[in-house]
Design a protein around this nucleic acid. Sequence first.
DNA 1: TTGACTGCAAATGCTTTGCACCATT
DNA 2: AATGGTGCAAAGCATTTGCAGTCAA
Lengths: 137, 137
Amino acid sequence: MSAQSLEQKCIEAGLKMTEPRRAILGVLSHAHDHPSVEEVYARAKKKDPSISMATVYRTLGLLDELGLVFRHEFNDADFARYEVSDEHHHHLIDMDSGKVLEFQNEDIEKMKQKIAKDLGYELVECRLELYGRKIKK
Amino acid sequence: MSAQSLEQKCIEAGLKMTEPRRAILGVLSHAHDHPSVEEVYARAKKKDPSISMATVYRTLGLLDELGLVFRHEFNDADFARYEVSDEHHHHLIDMDSGKVLEFQNEDIEKMKQKIAKDLGYELVECRLELYGRKIKK
DNA sequence: TTGACTGCAAATGCTTTGCACCATT
DNA sequence: AATGGTGCAAAGCATTTGCAGTCAA
């Protein structure tokens, strides 16, 4: 997703486009990882040195509410990580490096639906995280 | 799982059996829900009024390390919930009531293994939580 | 006896908020 | 001009920890 389009979505959502926000949106759009708030702050600070943590927290909160980003709290750390909303996927966390891989699986999606339905529930959201270690060859 | 056997496991693990611990273990053994630390504290306090939150936190931490309880952080709250380790299962959280249902699914277990393996990883642990709303008939 | 355990209160660390000032629309 | 956004510092909250006293083994 390009920086342009994320900015566009924010404007369409009625957000004012300020310098700090542009910096944060740029960081998120170009991130290929799942940065923590601290990391977003550090990267955004390079574009706009006057930015504050409070603004980063507030902006990420807004984006999350709008569904433009996803907030994750993986088991390997007690702080949140973010990523721009994209196609639906789940995560595998490398327990040694902390690196996060993404995957999709149609069968699991169907299973989730079925399990919820069988329990008498409509599935609204879900969290599936695998934690593992690289297999050495 | 009976209170007796959880106490037994703690003793076997080398823990000293004190009044506060007996109270906490009793609470956990008889809980049919997934109580928060605060809830464990409140219930344990009825058996041993002099107990402190610090001890509840420390004890739950020890039990978690020993693998005798599982610590969960569901999306609907920002505090931890605990349950006595039992057969492997996952959770469906009722988004309206906060109630937690448990389920098992052999197919999903196999898929998890396969997905991790395909990504070149050995699956160590996993988190699967469904969030939904009761279907009205 | 002695190392493990405890309660208390203070400290931690992520996140949120009150406030006064400022900028986008 | 008006509303929403911002930085700063203080507050919140779940959880952890230092310390001195206490207790199970």
